[in-house]
Design a protein around this nucleic acid. Structure first.
Lengths: 340, 340
DNA sequence: CTGTTAGCGCTTTCAG
DNA sequence: CTGAAAGCGCTAACAG
């Protein structure tokens, strides 16, 4: 009964013509039953076609379909580094939501490199994706997306470009204010390099809040990659400074993990000697030692806003995504049991 | 001088016909210069064509090319969950290496769900990818890949299927032997559910090594998802048992992170009261508290073996990938300073 | 209700 | 060295 095992061998897939021939109908009819329209098909005919399709193990060729319809049913996403927990979670959410909406996901990892990012965008665009979601390393560059609907995540606005703006600035301010409320006075910042998405706004928020509280920021800034190792080095440097900070606002969860390692090394207790708040609020923050108080980005909302922006005709050019402060143990608030 | 800004607006890309017209040549010639072959082109003509391409901002349509050549220059990968650090790192490596080889990457997240996995595979195959890399939730199923070159990562062999076999069994044995060497006698295992890739082999390795050392495994097994939360729950359960283990071999880094959290909660010291070794050896293991001794999978080697298997005609049907024990602090060996 | 057919943008054989 | 034309698999008029 299974001709399936046979069709495994042949390297040439069955085509619509084969099906039409076998079912004794025209190719148009096959199309109508596959797409369930746009013209009706007699029930008997439809059944013959369906049988033929099963017989041959027929699968529509999405490429040919895309070429004809000018719609690939695929969206692209490029991120600086998928192995960063935050981007990993984002990719997962996007893959899920895109799939549900009937779209495949093409992923381009920029490898934290501007030139690679450019090349990945180029590649995705040439594959005729229907939409492109970019967390760019270069907030000011105008990537050559050639008319592909594009949304920039987590970056500064550029005239005419549609973007999803996470409230990096407000979140950073909120974090620092919380540290101030805890009575901390020397509040340092481990930031991301200027090219990293959100880095500058988070830094700005730190400076604003410090200024408002009458705190100096001199000698309290170190920048690094959005990696654990980067956070470790930055943390070492900060903790080795003569006038050690009593709190740090960190620009990403992964960097905060590095800072915690540095603190352990230097026998600096968190939160007693050093209060820490990070940005992202991924699982990394939940399961660290101590668990990190963090500014949490709503990843699912981010993903769905991005997809909507790129897949739905009428959408606002700009969407603001709010963030929330989630208190755990690293800021000095009374510790809470693990949620689970 | 830039007609680029104009071509941004038009939603219909320039096509090969447009270029040919503008350059006053035939479409064949445009093809020859774009592909640098297969026929030679006079230098003067070539220049005219190149100018026309720039003028129009022409980009070849990869879909049309793929349809003609029966080669999409894209590979697909499906993983249970990209937000798992290990799969995230794998995806990054694959994106990188595939890009370098001239291929785009289509990502399908299975969401830890068998049905979703099946559907993602189906979708990728319909997009005519040149190769498919699967870490399957169902080591015994014969996914319907319809002649698409497919390689299974991290799963049991199936006759006729090509696969990259990580030495899960040997690695697990090595880990448990190390624990035995440390004098541990009640060595528990936090495993993955049977559907998770590698889970069963790692469990088997644990059982083998325990048997060889004359140790019982009764009441020392808990399974969970490959997630931090899963590891936390498993750890809580294990540590609450009357006859608490003095060591745990954990099937993944993320679960180990959960176990460490459970240990902190229960005031169980690692490694003094509880030695821990995990499987994966991602950055999660490097930056945890304490840093995790782990069986490390060589992700770059894995990725390149997978790509080779799927993109290169003559390749062995089976490749074995060795793993190594990387000693850090969680097993009870003298602690080492952070590498950097 | 069904068949014919013209393309989508590209490659490449076959003639000049 | 270059042009004309067939065709990859599919959709959707347009005709029956």
């Amino acid at each position: 009964m299974t001709t399936l095992s046979e069709s495994q061998d042949e390297h040439r897939h069955a085509t619509r013509t084969d099906v039409a021939k076998l079912a004794g109908v025209s190719t148009a009819v096959v199309s109508y039953v596959v797409n369930n329209g746009p013209r009706p098909v007699a029930e008997a005919t439809r059944e013959r076609v369906v049988n033929a399709m099963n017989e041959l193990g027929y699968r529509p060729n999405a490429l040919a379909r895309a070429l004809k319809l000018r719609r690939a049913h695929a969206v692209g996403v490029v991120v600086p580094d998928v192995s960063n927990t935050f981007f990993g979670a984002l990719a997962r959410e996007l893959s899920d939501q895109a799939f549900t909406a009937g779209y495949a996901l093409m992923l381009g990892d920029a490898n934290n490199d501007l030139e690679r990012e450019r090349a990945q965008i180029e590649s995705l665009v040439s594959h005729q994706i229907d939409g492109l979601i970019i967390t760019s390393l270069e907030p000011n560059s105008e990537a050559d997306v050639r008319g592909t609907r594009t949304v920039y995540l987590d970056r500064r606005v550029q005239p005419g470009q549609t973007s999803i703006i996470v409230d990096d600035l407000g979140g950073a301010e909120k974090a620092v204010q919380h540290l101030v409320w805890h009575g901390r006075r020397r509040i340092a910042h481990i930031g991301g390099f200027a090219t990293l998405p959100g880095a500058d706004a988070r830094l700005q928020g730190w400076m604003n809040a410090c200024a408002s509280a009458g705190l100096s920021t001199d000698g309290l800034l170190v920048r690094s990659d959005f990696t654990r190792a980067g956070g470790l080095n930055a943390g070492r440097e900060l903790l080795a400074r003569p006038d050690r900070p009593d709190a740090v606002f960190v620009a990403s969860d992964v960097q905060a993990l590095g800072l915690l390692a540095a603190a352990r090394e230097a026998h600096v207790r968190v939160p007693e000697d050093l209060a820490v708040i990070s940005f992202d609020g991924t699982d990394d923050a939940v399961f660290s030692d101590p668990p990190l108080t963090a500014i949490e980005q709503p990843i699912a909302a981010l993903a769905s806003a991005a997809l909507a922006a790129v897949l739905t005709p009428e959408q606002p050019v700009q969407t603001r995504i709010p963030v929330t402060l989630v208190v755990r143990d690293s800021c000095g608030c009374p510790p809470m049991p693990h949620a689970d």
